[in-house]
Write a protein that binds this DNA or RNA. Structure first.
Ligand SMILES: [Mn+2]
Ligand SMILES: [Mn+2]
Ligand SMILES: [Zn+2]
Ligand SMILES: [Zn+2]
Lengths: 145, 145
DNA sequence: TGTTAAATAAGAATAATTCCTATTCGCATG
DNA sequence: CATGCGAATAGGAATTATTCTTATTTAACA
């Protein structure tokens, strides 16, 4: 995603294009591991020292409301953000805090047909996310959270 | 789960049997909706006013370490606890904060054989949890979080 | 270029959770 | 049953992720 793509993302949602928003969007694209607000701030601050943490939260909230990011559920006490808004699943590493995206159309079709056939009484399914927990072989995770 | 079952659970893990631990265990059994530390305290305090919130957290931590409870991942800023430690999935209601257990052996077999066949490169799967997001028809959730 | 509503910076406030420590208590031992 | 000890608890302080507040700045548009 290049600069004009990012400007397009913001404009398309009716958001003012500001350097702060572009920087946060760029961080979300650059950081591979579902970053926290804090790690986004740290990343952006290298080039843009004046960005305040409160502003990062404001921007992420707006992005969330507009569907530009999603939040990733963990059992730790902070939220992680995800620039990938198309439905996908996650690999959770047991041994570190790495969370990797997992796309699998075949799996999605399998699940869809399973629940279409079987259903859940009294419940309307809108979305299904798998948390695949385990560990990498020869794990060498990126440093950034 | 009755009182002697609960005493058995604690003893089996080498934990001292205290009234506080029994009360928290009882609350976990009684509260159907993956309660927070705070709602466990509120529930227990009705019969046991002296139980301190810090003690609830201590006890839940010990239970977690011993595998008596698990933590349920949400995108809100507090942790919810689960007395059901056997592998299962969750229905997340869109419209309220209800989280219901979902057991489905057929589904588990389906997933297991799928991943046995397909695998994930460089990753060892230990556990798979589905977050099934949607809404109940005619929803009338219990009051307790 | 000037106007204006929206966005930001900075710091205070909030709330879930953790930490600290004096006191209490379960339980093993005699 | 009494004693002693290490573990557990109560209560409050500390921490920390997140939210709130407000004065200042700025992007967008006429
Ligand atoms: Mn993701
Ligand atoms: Mn559960
Ligand atoms: Zn790892
Ligand atoms: Zn509901």
């Amino acid at each position: 995603m290049n600069m004009s793509d990012m400007i397009g993302v913001l404009s398309a949602k009716g958001l003012k294009v500001t350097p702060q928003r572009l920087a946060v969007l760029g961080a979300l694209v650059a950081l591979p591991n579902h970053p926290t607000a804090d790690s986004i701030k740290a990343y952006v601050n290298e080039q843009f020292p004046s960005l305040a943490l409160g502003t990062v939260y404001n921007i992420l909230d707006v992005f969330f409301e507009k569907g530009i990011v999603t939040k990733v559920k963990t059992d730790r006490d902070f939220v992680r953000y995800d620039i990938e808004v198309n439905g996908h699943h996650h690999l959770y590493c047991d041994e570190c805090d790495y969370i990797e995206n997992y796309f699998d159309e075949e799996l999605d079709n399998l699940l869809q047909s399973y629940f279409q056939r079987k259903g859940i009484p009294n419940f309307n399914i809108r979305d299904i996310n798998l948390q695949i927990v385990g560990s990498y072989i020869n794990h060498n995770p990126p440093k950034n959270l």
